[in-house]
Design a protein around this nucleic acid. Structure first.
Lengths: 330, 330
DNA sequence: TTGTAAGCGTTATCAA
DNA sequence: TTGATAACGCTTACAA
């Protein structure tokens, strides 16, 4: 059998209440007693049982983290941010993958509820009424991470996707590009896609600028390359491209280069995410950088504020994005 | 206050034991009673409290997953494998990052103990006596994932790193390379590094083959590029290279190409991991593929066997690796 | 087939 | 400053 708080109490010649007190520092204990208890703990190799503690205190010091897929590069970076801050505040995270499926997401929120997590960091393509309803029903503090509630009823941490793409497009325009192409997934796929397309369109409203959009069926290098290649058969070559990711940006670069076009002379390209990929192309890729780690970290920090009843100024945190200028643009 | 099993019992007009029985299917319950209970659960929106259940049953259905850093590409892929199988067996995972620091690792094992996890999937550079001791003390089933106990006291899942590099080197030799270079981190850094270097040396024992090793100070693209560039100043150009990762392989390729060498004509290059990166270079990178997802999945599966007292044939599982031939080799 | 009641290992509320 | 003791919400003998 395992050593319990009761064993420690007996060993130290005090009551279990006192042991609990020195363990949690919830009340003043005479220094001498405290030492006795600590020594007993040491001697017995006692470890408090977090489950029992969770039951008694109704707080598990555990956060549910629901993501579409940890193995996605940008997500694992965010998760790292979440976990680091969680540890800092003495929380642990239960990590689950939803594969971006609504039913599974709802189900997972329920499971988190059963697990009595103190809070949830939630990530998904979009937030639907079903989500909101479940959150409310479960009565668990939630922070949306890189995800937004259109009605802003749930706190969230994001960057301004619209402005990010807008800035990128403006940069191209300011550097003499006038035939712009945005390459991404179908805008219907997620809130952030819609936001990006919106930014692109806004930037292209100038006179003399033509804009076009290439919707990819998926966001892998191979598909992007092929579909761009196909696109070029029937469309004039753009001289400015913004891609939804560095991987797609790289595919664009290769598709163009393989047709004999020069980057950035003939066409300038901007990627997205500032992954290591952007460094490994020739020329190196200019890219829009999202502070992924920070998005995770700030989400978790925001959640801790709710959990500790700290005052919260901003419910919808917007983190600044950045453009990293390399050599695929002027 | 939350709905408890007691509320359900009253609502259904049965005892809480009966409710527990229909919940867990631990005993036969009359169909009629079962229906009553189920309806009561439905009406009340009851969710069992996993913490209370964990305390009473002494099993939390939770697995601790200790990794150096989730945000590392290959690790997040493994974690995904772990989580998928965990879900399949109705477990959840608590994920923690150790940053490969011994002290933190030991500490985390202790925390997992407090959390009363049913088992641990452990990943680290190496397994030291301190680890083993802590595992034993905690009395929690552990599976080492992509990590090995030199004395094989703890079950583990790996690929045969020695053979993987050996195979790669043999491939190069069979394709007329006779000046081989292995590029990796210092062999002292981890068990797997040592294993790889060993495989390389073994393959190079043939007459007429010269082998060399370049130890990188870190494994990023930039550093690798620079250190290779420096290396080439004072060493003859190898005609066959095996890199410790695709990223490093890519750096090698670029360093060579920038000096005017042709890949694979002048020098053949083999990467490691079969990441998406390998597809994105020109020429595309031949690479040694580790089944990362599977390593995670099999680790977790193995752990479930221990947890459910299923018979286990192999304590040290070795998964097959693979060579993906592309265009950086003949 | 069902009910009773004793844990599980803490925290938290009273008293002392 | 400390000690009893009642929760916490469930599982699990043991009875019935």
């Amino acid at each position: 059998m395992n050593v319990t708080i009761y064993d420690v109490a007996r060993e130290a010649g005090v009551s279990m209440a006192t042991v609990s007190r020195v363990l949690n520092g919830t009340a003043v204990v005479k220094e001498e007693t405290k030492q006795k208890v600590k020594q007993a703990i040491e001697r017995l190799g006692y470890r408090p049982n977090a489950v029992a503690r969770g039951l008694a205190s109704k707080r598990t010091k555990t956060i549910g983290v629901i993501v579409p897929d940890v193995s996605a590069l940008y997500i694992s970076e965010i998760v790292r941010g979440i976990e680091d801050i969680a540890v800092m505040y003495r929380y642990h995270i239960i990590l689950v993958n939803s594969d971006a499926q609504l039913e599974r997401e709802i189900d997972l929120i329920g499971t988190m509820w059963e697990k009595q997590v103190d809070g949830i960091v939630f990530m998904s393509k979009q937030v639907l009424p079903d989500h909101i309803e479940t959150f409310i029903q479960a009565q668990i503090p939630v922070v949306l991470c890189a995800t937004e509630d259109p009605e802003r009823r749930i706190p969230s941490v994001n960057i301004d996707y619209t402005k990010a793409i807008f800035d990128g497009a403006r940069y191209l325009i300011d550097h003499n590009a006038n035939r712009l192409l945005y390459v991404g997934d179908p805008a219907a796929a997620s809130i952030s896609s819609q936001a990006r397309v919106k930014g692109f369109k806004e930037a292209g409203k100038d006179s003399g600028i033509s804009i076009d959009i290439l919707e990819l069926s998926d966001l892998t290098y191979e598909t992007s390359y092929k579909e761009m290649d196909y696109f070029l058969d029937s469309h004039p070559v753009p001289n400015g491209i913004i891609a939804v990711s560095d991987e797609v940006g790289l595919a664009m670069m290769h598709a163009l280069q393989d047709r004999g076009f020069k980057v950035p002379e003939d066409v300038q390209i901007i990627g997205y995410d500032n992954t290591r990929l952007a460094l490994m192309s020739r020329p190196q890729l200019t890219t829009i950088s999202q502070p992924l780690y920070d998005i995770g970290a700030v989400s978790m920090r925001l959640l801790t504020k709710f959990l500790q009843d700290e005052p919260v100024e901003t419910y919808s945190v917007v983190l600044p994005h950045d453009m990293v200028i390399r050599h695929s643009t002027f």
